[in-house]
Amino acid sequence: MIRVNDLHKRYGDQKVLDGVDFSIQRGTVTTIIGRSGGGKTVLLRHLMGLESPDSGDVIIDGENLSRMGDADLNRIRRRFGILFQEGALFDSLTVAENVAFPLEEHTKFSKSEIMHVVREKLGTVGMTGHEAKFPAQISGGMRKRVALARALALDPDIVFFDEPTTGLDPVTKSAIYALIRRTHQQASTTYVIVSHDIRGVFSVSDETLMLWEGKILAKGTPEEMERYPDPIVKQFISGSPEGPIHVD
């Protein structure tokens, strides 16, 4: 279980997180929505222990990430799978080597066992046949799918997805959601997804959190969010240009 207590973070004089509070149950799929530049990636980076908060705590299964040394952080991170917004593939490694990387680091698998897993994971994201290419030689959407395969390579218990479907065509998009649904069926994996694709993520999430002006403004199941009375939430979910949210 992930618990976030009163998290604050500012960059210069810009308050990005201003008292974020929530908890995520083990084995659920939780989506964080919010407007572009609203701090979703920053929040996710705190959950992974990549950023340390000005104040507040991130607690994963009773362990406080904000007060942890490198060695303990590494122990916890072994359970993580992470999909970065831009993929963050290692550009000096091929597609297959990228997916193999976490397996080589953290398992005792033989070369052929690793190749087997790599082939299987690349298959599930529809990237078979591109094993030997370098990240610079494939498209943005393909990179995202390889990054997804890498994030899932170790069958992690907690997976953080930063916009898993942006930049993908509609068919691949629904294939990714199907993949998320399918891989999630393995008991007790916890998925945290950041996305703008509200319809898509509603189809996979148990709970949705809306981050607004540095705080969690609303949370609930997709059905609850659809019927949420707050005008900001209403407008955000319907995507209407009319309402309290202004694009300036």
Partner: peptide, 11 residues
């Protein structure tokens, strides 16, 4: 390009 963070995040 977040590759250093990706390393860290993979322990």
């Amino acid at each position: 390009t977040d590759q250093i963070d990706a390393l860290a995040s993979m322990a």
